[in-house]
């Protein structure tokens, strides 16, 4: 099993709470509909650009209460370009993605394109999508 899984939880924590401020203005809005995130805690969403360290430090982040069905968050004024999203559900409200003692996440998580890794996070390439001048909507399924 690749060791990358061990770093996943740490990466999430950094990506949500070490956010760089967004400097874009008058760009497109990105609406993210997050399905099946459960009804416990908060959905923590991190938006990465190619220039960011994937799963390290995100350009932007936001959060919304988890709700059965769908939760929607919006990133405003995005520059044109490629982006990818990682998210997790902070079910117990401790501000980080919990893992078991081996480092396997025990709170739900997902990526844009519903990208999956094999016992670890997917590459940025698998999760990336394009934002042009127009507003855009995407869907991410958590389970």
């Amino acid at each position: 099993m690749p060791r990358t899984l061990l770093n996943l939880a740490a990466a999430f924590t950094i990506s949500i709470f070490g956010l760089a401020a967004s400097s874009a203005a008058f760009g497109a809005d990105l609406t993210v509909e997050i399905r099946n995130a459960g009804d416990k805690g908060t959905v923590m969403v991190a938006l990465f650009k190619p220039s960011d360290r994937w799963l390290g430090r995100a350009s932007m982040g936001t959060a919304a209460p988890a709700r059965n069905g769908a939760v929607t968050v919006t990133f405003k004024d995005l520059e044109e370009g490629e982006y990818a999203i990682s998210l997790f559900v902070d079910e117990n409200g401790n501000g980080r993605m919990d893992t078991n003692p081996i480092g396997i996440p025990i709170e739900p998580y997902a990526f844009s394109n519903d990208a999956t890794g094999n016992f670890g996070p997917p590459l940025f390439e698998k999760a990336k999508f394009n934002v042009a001048k127009e507003n855009k909507s995407i869907v991410i399924n958590v389970k």
Partner: peptide, 15 residues
């Protein structure tokens, strides 16, 4: 993916 068969994941493998 399986223990002894090299199959790509076509479903999320989160744990």
């Amino acid at each position: 993916p399986a223990f002894g068969s090299a199959l790509p994941a076509h479903m999320p493998v989160r744990n």
